[in-house]
Design a protein around this nucleic acid. Structure first.
Length: 465
RNA sequence: GUGGUCGUAGCUCAGCUGGUUAGAGCGUCAGAAUGUGGCUCUGAAGGUCGUGGGUUCGAAACCCAUCUUCCACCCCA
């Protein structure tokens, strides 16, 4: 039997202690901000029933779901789809696969945390206090093709509130965004838009069913330019008059108020659009009163694919790094409706921990102080000394000071090197001399200084810091 | 899912148009007066050249497939 090369699936990663310390720094920061805003944690299973997941993320989303094979010989009851057709052409085989999927797989890995949360709310509705504010920090999986900032397994940090349509929560979420990124030391811009405005635009130019195509095209304005956008819209079946009517939106610039004027003019023919504008104005008014440290603005081009959003949608970008959005979310008026609890409005956002990590790494924003864990290493000089050291070691641990002892009486050089490499700041040497005098030799590995201290003095000096 | 790209020691890479025993730097390990790390010196170990086929007298170099990396599209955290 040959030795196999160890490997992990595409788009997944191992995390070393050095990486985990930094990742935890992000998780802890996010978590503590969520908590001061009054959100409580929940967790849901890694896998959900496929029926819970399918159809919630659009056609694309369904393709990106990781499906779990059923246990047992699930093929037994299934007829060979090619049986009556001994020359299976390509077409029929594809559809057969699709139809066979539900027979062989009924579970899938979660794609995000919002849909499982909606399911959770419906299932536990009688135990929850509404408006229900929760946060959730767990991995999600997408069968996407990996690239920079895009993984197949990654962590999302979601905050959502369900049971209130109040725009105060949109404001609260934007405050959370501001607080989290201020604490992490990343400068950001929060872009927001409103699905009702997008729907209003489609409605006003006489193509309400083409909302998706229109938003996708508008989104490309920066990248491919006005002409190509118009061309693409026509290819997508939009009439000349509609494209003409859309021009003011495409050419719109200036301050938020200027844009609102343009849209209001357009929305004389769209009630939905007007509603969206009203929400936008309200949100902007509230935000202006707050002294946020990071930038925010309204951007009609922001689309966001997840098709359950119905109101405000938002997205956060790091100002100093080329990375997709590091946080995103929005309002969904009826997510729980699909699971049998209609009329409950929710709004939430999701922080992409892995992308935030990548950005912070690139910009070198991790504080040095989060590095080392063990603060004191006890050098091992032999069985006698070991027993003595163990007692002092235990005292330190009782005081909550992370400390460890070297496992065997190796050469001092080796033991100190171990301490150096683990970035342990202090080494304690207890040999014959120290045992007799009762004074410990304490070496500061950063400065190289060495002192003789009694146990009490030593512990006191550690507690001071 | 479509198109492209990368893959040589633990890491970063060199290896000219195919030609003997595949190299460097860093790292690792072992030494350099028996209780003192980082710096220095000496020495050593370490490579199925991503994997599997093929072309060839001969392949790390060429071809095909496959896996992985990264990029664009799509979509998204």
């Amino acid at each position: 039997m040959s030795v196999q090369k160890p490997s992990i699936p595409k788009g997944t990663r191992d995390f070393t202690p050095a990486e985990m310390v930094r990742r935890n720094y992000i998780f802890n920061t996010v978590r503590s901000v969520f908590e001061i805003f009054g959100y409580l944690p929940i967790e849901t299973p890694a896998m959900e029933n496929l029926s819970t997941l399918m159809g919630k993320y659009g056609e694309e989303g369904d393709k990106l779901l990781f499906k779990i094979l059923n246990s047992g010989n699930y093929l037994e009851g299934i007829r060979d789809p090619g049986a009556g057709n001994r020359e299976p052409d390509h077409e029929s085989r594809v559809t057969d696969l699709a139809s066979i999927t539900r027979h062989i797989s009924e579970k899938g890995l979660r794609y995000d945390l919002t849909v499982p949360f909606a399911r959770f709310v419906v299932q536990h509705q009688n135990e929850l206090v509404f408006p229900f504010k929760r946060y959730q920090i767990q991995p999600v999986w997408r069968a996407d093709r990996p690239q920079k900032g895009r993984y197949r397994e990654f962590f999302q940090c979601d905050v959502d509130v369900v049971g209130s349509p109040s725009l105060l929560y949109e404001v609260e979420l934007i405050q959370i965004i501001d607080e989290v990124f201020s604490r992490l030391g990343i400068q950001t811009t929060t872009l927001f838009n409103n699905r009702k405005i997008l729907a209003g635009i489609a409605e006003a130019i006489g193509a309400p069913e083409k909302m998706n195509e229109i938003t996708v095209a508008i989104d490309k304005l920066d990248k491919i330019g006005l002409e190509k956008v118009c061309l693409e819209l026509k290819e997508k079946g939009l009439g000349d008059s509609a494209v003409t009517a859309l021009q003011p939106v495409l050419l719109m610039e200036g301050r938020i108020n200027d844009k609102i004027v343009v849209l209001e003019d357009l929305f004389k023919r769209s009630e939905t659009g007007m509603k969206g504008i009203a929400e936008l104005k309200h949100l902007v008014t509230l935000l202006k009163d707050l002294d946020l440290r990071n930038k925010w603005t309204f951007d009609v081009r922001l689309a966001r694919g997840l098709n359950y959003y119905t109101g405000t949608i938002m997205e956060v970008k790091a100002n100093e790094a080329a990375m997709g959005s590091i946080c995103g979310g929005g309002r969904y008026d009826d997510l729980t409706g699909i699971f049998g609890l209609p009329g409950v409005s929710g709004v939430g956002i999701s922080f992409g921990a892995d992308r935030i990590y990548d950005v912070m790494n690139e910009l070198n924003r991790f504080p040095e102080t989060i590095q080392h864990t063990t603060r004191v290493l006890f050098v091992n000089f032999g069985p006698e000394e070991e027993r003595f050291a163990l007692k002092v070691l235990n005292e330190l641990r009782q005081e909550g000071i992370p400390a460890e002892i070297y496992p065997d009486p190796s050469k001092l050089k080796k033991q100190l090197e171990y301490a150096s490499r683990k970035q342990i700041p202090l080494a304690v040497l207890i040999g014959k001399d120290e045992m007799e005098s009762g004074l410990l030799t304490v070496k500061d590995l950063e400065s190289g200084e060495q002192n003789r201290l009694s146990r009490e003095e030593f512990i006191r000096s550690l507690k001071k810091i």
